[in-house]
Design a binder for these strands. Structure first.
Length: 487
DNA sequence: TTTTGAGTTGTTCGA
DNA sequence: GTCGAACAACTCAAA
């Protein structure tokens, strides 16, 4: 029951930039008192300066700006503005409580060490001035404390984890978005433009703008379209970068424009409309399971982005090779499928999942460059860079992680191209200087004849690079390096 | 308690 | 051309 009160309640938005299925907002709205909605850009709090916290990457900053604009519009339509504040979160919220006369503050949990630490600071600061606070669940299907082995540790193998999560049943029904909010007039807001989240000089975001519409409405529309369309054949189609059948929901999930339980429930109940899709739906749910698995892992290993899960990798002979790293980053390795992926990433802030594995394996195994360098590049350039999934999956590829890929699994970039981009359409789209090559040459231009290259307007070493490493040699070198760290 | 089998995403080699 | 084996080490669950 709603309490009789006129004091406002603060709703602190974090990575949950949505109105529906937002437990904290739902609670505040049900109090029938004014709400003060706030987002805080915190680059100061001591816990945020812990080694486990990294500033947002460039692509994520761009997304955040768009997503905040969408949330501002949506909240204004409900009758309450979104306030923007900057600074140490605990002080900012305590100040806002004083300015607004709020008697409570609510927010949703984010189950990572730095987020929890800031959250504790906020609760303490509010307690000191007599303001009640309450934290709700929201960013996970299951709490990390609910999936433990006999020793009380989180699971390190995906399949048992997934069995436990899946058999836990469906999460509760998502909460509706509030119909209207009581405004609390007074407190001032920062101007989003002055946060400089978006690139200028140069403005490299044109490809992002052409690819994405951030915000809750867009996330919901995307989910609906996916479940009524592309999910048919997802189990195998998701592996084909040339005809992308993935959900493309990852950045929306990253910023909480849609909640995992909304996605889960919608997918499960779409089987009623499309009974033929049952197997594809299960596969899709398991991908949500991977997001969950990585977050639970992060909960147990807060420094997963910095430390090898397998200590034997601490003596891995990584090569320092800035030129090769640069070639990889800019999509100039001479392997078309690798270069296509890296350019898709650079231009659009996303890369198809299959290609992520190929480029990651290439950096770590063909070039013997530390997975942390790859992880950092993805962190800066992906709009969906996630604190759990990004480092956990890099460690998985490198072999240093939980339930990791075996060392001898070295993706052959030519074979992967031929298998998953059989007509070369993906390469042609992102590596236009090769577009006129046909047949086998599209995935291995260095084997094309002089006349084939001339006809296609390709001059190796000039219009497109020679391969920076030979696949066979690189493979043998990687196997030797991995052999060297074994017991 | 101990044992056993299985585990996201692959490649190469030799029969 | 196809096919099976080999390529670790470790975690977890079931027997």
């Amino acid at each position: 029951m709603a309490r009789k009160t006129t004091s406002p309640c603060i709703v602190w938005f974090r990575d949950d930039l949505r109105l529906s299925d937002h437990p904290a907002l739902h609670f505040a709205a049900s109090r029938d008192a004014p709400v003060v909605c706030v987002y805080i850009l915190d680059e100061q709090s001591a816990p945020l300066r812990s080694p486990e916290w990294r500033p947002l990457g460039g692509a994520a900053r761009w997304w955040l700006a768009q997503s905040l604009r969408a949330l501002q519009t949506d909240l204004a339509a409900l009758g309450s503005p979104l306030l923007l504040r900057r600074g140490a979160t605990a002080q900012a919220i305590a100040n806002l409580a004083r300015e607004s006369g709020a008697d409570c503050a609510v927010w949703n949990d984010i189950a990572t060490a730095p987020h929890r630490s800031v959250s504790d600071d906020v609760a303490r600061a509010l307690g000191d001035i007599g303001v009640a606070s309450r934290v709700f669940d929201g960013d996970l299907i299951a709490k990390p404390s609910t999936i433990r082995n006999k020793q009380g540790h989180g699971l390190r193998v995906f399949t048992p984890f997934w069995n436990r999560l899946r058999h836990g049943g469906d999460p509760p029904a998502p909460l509706p978005r509030p119909k209207r909010l009581h405004n609390s007039t007074g407190p001032a807001s920062d101007d989003l433009e002055r946060w400089h989240l978006e690139p200028r000089h140069p403005d490299w975001a044109a490809g992002l703008r052409a690819t994405w519409i951030p915000g809750e409405a867009s996330a919901q529309a995307r989910l609906g379209d996916f479940l009524d369309g592309d999910i048919a054949g997802y189990a195998t189609g998701r592996d084909r970068p040339d005809r992308d059948r993935t959900s493309r929901l990852s950045p929306h999930l990253r910023f909480g424009e849609i909640s995992p339980r909304q996605v889960w429930r919608a997918a499960r109940f779409s089987a009623d409309r499309h009974p033929g899709n049952a197997a594809d739906i299960e596969k899709f749910l398991s991908e949500l399971g991977w997001r969950e698995f990585c977050r639970h892992l992060l909960h147990d290993v807060p420094d997963i982005a910095a430390r090898n899960l397998q200590p034997s990798f601490d003596r891995f002979p990584w090569r320092r090779d800035p030129a090769a790293l640069r070639a990889w980053q800019r999509g100039r390795t001479g392997y078309p499928i690798v270069d296509a992926g890296m350019r898709q990433l650079w231009q659009t802030g996303i890369m198809h999942n299959r290609v992520r594995m190929v480029v990651a394996s290439f950096l770590v195994k063909h070039l013997l460059i530390d997975w942390r360098d790859g992880e950092a590049w993805f962190w800066d350039t992906l709009v969906d860079a996630d604190v759990g999934s990004n480092p956990a999956n890099w460690q998985w590829v490198a072999g240093s992680g939980a339930d990791a890929a075996p060392y001898f699994r070295i993706f052959n970039p030519i074979l992967q191209g031929e298998k998953f981009d059989p007509d070369g359409d993906y390469v042609r789209r992102w590596v236009p200087e090769l577009a006129r090559l046909s047949g086998k040459a599209i995935h291995q231009p260095w084997t094309a004849t002089e006349s084939e290259l001339a006809m296609a307007g390709v001059r190796l070493g000039q219009t497109y690079p020679e391969p920076i490493v030979d696949h066979g040699q690189a493979r043998r070198r990687a196997l030797a390096a991995y052999a060297g760290i074994r017991s």
